[in-house]
């Protein structure tokens, strides 16, 4: 069977399976288990109504349990075993991690990423959203800035490899250096600062996301509050920072935390650009280097990442819920 055919079958089975499940389960509930007739008709209708949400939620709950909850528990359990998975070693994997210089470096770099990338992406997104708001060609500018969102992290990394290339005929940075009469260098190998060169890639990608959401939020601000502030004498900066930004603070926080969560999971960029060398290691790519060599240690890293992401995630969901209210 050709893969294409297989794919189509899978889609059909999936879609019609879902529709079939909901239809059949609903029918079963209404006609067989709690039929809306007979002496207990009122009670039956109430019970059917009480059961129905669970019936519809069941597939989602099952899927989430099997593919999310179980792996979390399973990973934690696995991280308590040694490399081969045969010997229980307690917290030794975690102890070894924190004794490891590369891990500590990755943790530090990750913290740096989590601070710089969301801040920069949100800041630039907000800036672009505000500046393009009144422009005639603002929508074209926005489309261009949004475009990197459509590129995979690996693809983006490859593009930026050209930007950072050592050959002045290829890399723009070295082309500029060459123009100034300086010797070519490899930006990727400059200690510490190379982290920021890698972050630039993710900022480049995520600014579009921040811009789109914040642009919509800015448009949602009642025009009258802005006009009232103009009459009150606010200059453009005060208008922006004292009237507009506070009104979209909820959205800014959601964008910020969403990007933070993404940052804590991204490994592709580091993996593609440096493979974690030259002091650019971060947790997810560090996990990748350990995977298949020492699964116990790798799952321990995964658990650490989860613990780091969790509070941000909870905050993010809380803020998003507040926004929706």
């Amino acid at each position: 069977m050709s893969p294409l055919f297989q794919g189509i079958i899978t889609i059909l089975v999936g879609v019609f399976g879902c529709v079939g499940y909901f239809y059949a389960a609903n029918l079963l509930l209404d006609k067989v288990i709690f039929p809306a007739r007979g002496p207990n008709i009122g009670r039956n209708i109430n019970r059917a109504t009480a059961v129905r949400p669970w019936l519809f939620l069941l597939p989602a709950i099952l899927a989430l349990s099997v593919y999310l909850v179980y792996p979390v528990v399973g990973s934690f359990w696995r991280s308590l075993f040694n490399r081969s998975g045969e010997e229980f070693i307690g917290m030794d994997n975690y102890g070894a991690l924190f004794a490891d210089d590369v891990f500590r470096q990755a943790l530090f770099n990750n913290a740096l990423w989590a601070l710089v990338v969301p801040a920069a992406a949100t800041f630039f997104g907000l800036l672009v959203a505000q500046l393009t708001d009144r422009l005639k060609w603002g929508n074209i500018a926005k489309s261009l800035i949004f475009m990197p969102m459509a590129i995979s992290f690996v693809g983006a990394s490859l593009i930026w490899k050209f930007v950072y290339a050592g050959d002045p005929d290829i890399g723009i940075i070295n082309a500029v250096r060459d123009g100034l009469g300086l010797d070519p260098m490899d930006p990727i190998q400059v200690p510490f600062w190379n982290n920021f060169f890698l972050m630039a890639i993710l900022i480049w990608i995520q600014t579009g996301f921040a811009m789109v959401i914040l642009s919509a939020a800015l448009r949602g601000i009642p025009e009258e509050t802005v006009e009232a502030a103009i009459i009150d004498g606010a200059n453009p900066f005060q208008l922006f920072f004292k009237i507009k930004v506070p009104q979209i603070m909820g959205t800014i926080v959601v964008v910020w935390t969403t990007i933070t969560i993404l940052v804590l999971k991204v490994f592709d960029i580091v993996y593609t650009m440096t493979g974690g060398n030259f002091g650019t290691q971060i947790l997810p790519s560090y996990m990748m280097t350990l995977m298949f060599r020492d699964d116990g240690r790798a799952t321990a890293v995964a658990v650490v990442i989860m613990v780091v992401v969790l509070p941000v995630m909870i905050w993010n969901i809380r803020q998003a819920q507040k926004e929706m209210r």
């Binding site: 009642p222 009258e224 509050t225 006009e227 103009i230 004498g233 009104q247």
Partner: peptide, 21 residues
């Protein structure tokens, strides 16, 4: 002359209060 320096104040139909203050 910019609005703020005209010696005027305006009350809007939608109140236009600053919601965060």
């Amino acid at each position: 002359v910019p609005p703020a320096q005209r010696g005027i104040a305006m009350v809007f139909q939608t109140y236009a209060l600053y919601p965060h203050m």
